[in-house]
């Protein structure tokens, strides 16, 4: 990532809890929000990012630096994204969805959404509610009706004991 020509431009980003981060402009403009600020010439001083906390911003900057260091190789970028997200917990992922949306980083948004969905896909309704902090707003009657409705899902499914 060393700059070949002169000094690389760095930007200073400020999180909503007043942490300051220094990041190469070439990496930061992965965020369309930041890129627009740069293009409009309002990225000279400190760029306040009012919707992102320091912890999340640190993580997003790690991602920005990591992904922008990879040349145009979609396969490598994909495996970087997978690796980057592999150790993130749900709170972090949720924070990152919000940050990616605010910063307008569609590739990160997509990767994080896919990651959350991937983890969810193998889990029960109860697990998802518990883990995601979602309140069950079905009444017991509705819940029973729902169970009845989707009973067929388990009918006719062949056993796979022999596998």
């Amino acid at each position: 990532m060393a700059a070949e020509t002169g000094t690389p431009t760095t930007l200073t980003l400020k999180s909503n809890d007043d942490e300051l981060f220094s990041v190469a402009e070439s990496a930061a403009i992965l965020s369309v929000t930041i890129r627009n600020m740069v293009e409009d010439g309002c990225a000279g001083g400190v760029i306040p990012l009012d919707n992102v906390d320091g912890k999340t911003l640190a993580s997003v900057i790690t991602y920005m630096n990591g992904i922008s260091a990879i040349p145009a190789d979609e396969e490598k970028k994909k495996s970087y994204r997978d690796k980057f997200l592999s150790d993130k917990d749900f709170e972090t992922l949720a924070d990152m969805v919000l940050a990616a949306n605010y910063l307008n980083m569609s590739c990160l948004m997509d990767a994080v959404s896919a990651k959350i969905a991937q983890v969810m896909e193998k889990k029960s309704v109860g697990w998802v509610r518990r883990k995601f902090g979602i309140e069950n707003d079905y009444t017991p009657e509705e819940e029973a009706a729902v169970k009845e409705e989707h009973k067929w899902t388990f009918e006719g499914v062949e056993t796979d004991d022999d596998n």
Partner: peptide, 30 residues
């Protein structure tokens, strides 16, 4: 947490699930 995400982001996340999973599981979460 996921529950507090704005609707459009929940929409985005749910799009990544398979039709089968949405139909038999995810739509019954809430």
């Amino acid at each position: 947490n996921i529950a507090s995400l704005p609707d459009e982001m929940v929409f985005e996340i749910l799009l990544h699930l398979s039709a089968e999973h949405i139909y038999s599981e995810a739509r019954f979460v809430c």
